[in-house]
Simulated scan of single mutants.
Amino acid sequence: MKNEGKREKNWKDLYIRSTKLARAKQLGIEYPRISDAELRKNSISEASEQINVLFVCSKNQWRSPTAETVWRSHPKLNVRSGGTSPNARHHVSEDDIRWADVILVMEEKHKSRLKAEYTRVLDFKSIHVLDIPDDYRYMDAELVEQLKQTVPSILMIE
């Protein structure tokens, strides 16, 4: 008799969960949602772990690849770069955004484009605008210097 009560309860739980999953799928929502505390814990890397940083510009041609090259060898960072333009060398993907702990964009328009395209995925991501205009070529000395001055304070690294 005890087992039947438990069995019935499990069946009801499974039914309720499956209907919630189906409804969440219709709405494009992840279910079950992860608690805020767990999201923060997952997004904040431990001091001993590396930080995943995504650098973003328009075409992924000069600024973000330069940033990736400059910071690639830093022991506390894993870096990638991408562009917001459809004809970028590497267009920023949902996987890139999910991978990143921190997203550093060159201009405000890049932040706006990312938010327009990946609204849900960016809900708990840290995005910082570096305010670096499209005036530089790949590995331009002035661009490298700007990156070396601004990035450490944002990422709290040395």
Rank of each mutant, 00 (worst) to 15 (best):
E158Q: 13
A37L: 03
W71K: 04
S58K: 09
R120S: 07
L130Q: 03
Q149F: 15
V129A: 06
K76H: 05
R33G: 10
S64A: 05
D101S: 04
V129S: 04
D13Q: 07
S48P: 01
T69Q: 03
N3T: 13
V144H: 06
W71E: 00
E117Y: 04
M1C: 04
K2H: 08
D135W: 12
Q50M: 12
V129D: 12
A67Q: 04
V53P: 01
E38Q: 11
K6R: 14
L122I: 06
R63W: 00
L14C: 09
P75A: 08
A24V: 11
K41Y: 10
T119N: 10
L27P: 00
N60H: 12
H90R: 15
T69D: 09
A141M: 02
A141Q: 10
A37S: 00
R80F: 10
D140V: 03
H90F: 15
R89L: 11
E49V: 03
I157G: 11
Y136D: 06
V129I: 10
I34L: 09
M139D: 01
K9N: 05
E68W: 08
L77N: 08
V92S: 14
V70H: 05
I127E: 07
E94F: 05
W71R: 11
K25E: 11
R80Q: 08
T84V: 09
P86C: 12
E94R: 10
N60G: 12
S64C: 02
E49L: 05
P75W: 09
L39C: 05
W99L: 00
V129Q: 00
R113H: 03
L114C: 00
P133V: 06
H128T: 12
E158K: 14
P133T: 12
Q26L: 12
R23F: 05
V56Q: 13
A37N: 06
V92N: 13
M139G: 01
S35V: 01
E68S: 08
R72I: 01
S73W: 01
S35M: 08
G82E: 02
S153I: 04
W71Y: 15
K125Y: 04
K6P: 13
L155H: 09
I154Y: 11
K6E: 15
R17D: 14
I132Y: 15
K59Y: 14
K115V: 01
R98C: 07
Q61E: 14
K41I: 07
Y118F: 15
H90T: 15
Y136I: 02
P152E: 13
K9L: 11
P75F: 07
N60Q: 11
N3V: 14
E46A: 06
D131M: 07
F55D: 07
G82S: 06
H128G: 01
S153R: 13
D134K: 04
V105M: 08
G82N: 08
R72D: 05
W71Q: 03
L143F: 10
C57V: 08
S43Q: 03
H91V: 15
E94D: 15
E142A: 09
P133E: 02
S45Y: 01
